[in-house]
Simulated assay, not measured.
Amino acid sequence: MPVSTLAVRPDTPPPTPAAESVVSLAASAAAILALHTVDEQGMCTQCRTAYAHLTPHPCSQHAWAQRVNQSVPAPETLQLLGLPCS
C-alpha cells in the first residue's frame, strides 16, 4: 500500500516578479512626485528646469505618478500578502 505524503505549504507565497515591479513602479512614482512640484507661478518646477517647458502644474508626469500612487497597495497590504515592500 503506498504511503501518502502531506504537502506542507508556506504561510505566505514567495514574492513574484510582478510584485517586485509594482514596488519599483511605486518608487518611480514617488520620485516623480517629489520632483514635479508647483512653483510660485503655478508651473511645474521639474518641467521648467529639465525640459525648459512652461507647463501648468500638475503636468502629465505628475498626474501619471499620482494615478500610480493611488493604485499601488499600501506597504501594510503588501506585507500582509507576503510581498516585498520598500
Rank of each mutant, 00 (worst) to 15 (best):
L78E: 09
A19T: 07
S21A: 15
V3H: 09
V72T: 01
V68N: 04
S71C: 07
W64D: 08
M1P: 11
R48Y: 13
Q46M: 08
R48F: 12
H53P: 09
P10Y: 01
A65Q: 07
Q46T: 03
A34S: 15
S86V: 00
L6I: 12
Q66C: 06
A52L: 11
M1C: 09
P10Q: 15
I32K: 08
A65L: 05
H36Y: 01
V72H: 06
A7K: 10
T49C: 02
P75Q: 08
L25R: 12
H62S: 06
P2Y: 09
Y51V: 06
L6R: 14
E40I: 10
A74F: 05
H57S: 06
S71G: 12
A52D: 08
H57T: 04
P2K: 09
V23K: 11
A63R: 11
E76C: 03
D39T: 01
L81C: 12
P75A: 07
P10E: 08
C44N: 02
G82F: 00
S28N: 13
P84R: 03
H53K: 03
H36N: 01
S24V: 05
A29I: 10
A7V: 12
T55F: 00
E40M: 07
L54V: 07
L6A: 05
P17T: 08
S21C: 11
A26M: 03
R67T: 02
L78M: 14
S86F: 01
H62L: 02
T5G: 14
S21T: 15
I32Y: 12
A50W: 00
A52N: 12
P14N: 03
Q70K: 05
W64A: 12
Q70N: 04
A34V: 05
